Computed example of a mutant assay.
Amino acid sequence: MVVMFNNRKERAELLEAVVVGNKDATIPHFPQKIHLLWGESDQIFDLKLAKNMKEQLGEKATIDSIKKAGHLVQLERPCVYNRRLKKFLASIHFEDKILQ
């Protein structure tokens, strides 16, 4: 039990250093397609944040929400997650074939 309370000051300093404000955050421009798979019931990062991120990422970004899923979509709804991921990957493969 004593170990839990050692280095309390250092732990607090580390936690403060990890927290970064988002007021000055900018999302870089990515040349590739980006697909966001989001749980509609995510209580850590809500769907509004996902939509905002998609807008900031630009035209090459797409978003897909999964009902009855929270933050860990791939664990909560693995079959739905895999189907959506396969669909996205297939679209990239299809585009690559067209461009060749």
Rank of each mutant, 00 (worst) to 15 (best):
M1I: 09
M1R: 12
V2A: 15
V2M: 12
V2Q: 13
V2Y: 15
V3A: 14
V3F: 12
M4G: 14
M4N: 14
F5T: 15
N6R: 15
R8F: 12
K9N: 15
K9Y: 15
K9I: 14
E10D: 14
E10A: 15
E10T: 12
E10N: 15
E10C: 12
E10P: 01
A12I: 10
L14G: 13
L14E: 11
E16T: 04
V18K: 08
V19C: 04
V19S: 05
G21I: 06
G21H: 07
N22G: 11
K23A: 10
A25V: 09
A25G: 05
T26I: 06
T26Q: 07
T26V: 08
I27H: 11
P28V: 04
P28F: 05
H29V: 07
H29R: 08
H29S: 08
F30A: 11
F30D: 07
P31S: 12
K33Y: 04
K33A: 07
H35N: 06
H35Q: 07
W38F: 03
E40I: 02
E40N: 03
E40A: 05
E40R: 03
S41R: 05
S41V: 04
Q43R: 14
Q43K: 12
I44G: 06
I44L: 11
D46N: 14
L47R: 01
L47G: 01
K48G: 11
K48E: 14
L49D: 13
A50C: 10
A50I: 04
A50T: 05
K51F: 04
K51G: 03
K51N: 08
N52H: 10
N52R: 14
N52L: 13
N52W: 13
M53E: 06
M53H: 02
M53L: 15
L57G: 03
L57C: 08
E59T: 09
A61Y: 01
A61E: 01
A61I: 02
T62Y: 01
I66S: 00
I66G: 00
K67V: 11
G70C: 05
G70T: 03
G70S: 11
H71A: 09
V73H: 00
V73A: 00
Q74C: 06
L75Q: 10
L75P: 01
E76S: 09
P78W: 05
P78L: 03
P78K: 04
C79L: 12
N82W: 08
R83L: 06
R83V: 06
R83W: 05
L85V: 06
L85G: 00
L85W: 02
K86W: 07
K86I: 07
K87P: 01
L89M: 07
L89E: 04
S91L: 04
H93L: 10
F94C: 02
E95P: 00
E95V: 04
E95F: 03
D96H: 09
I98N: 05
Q100S: 13
Q100E: 11
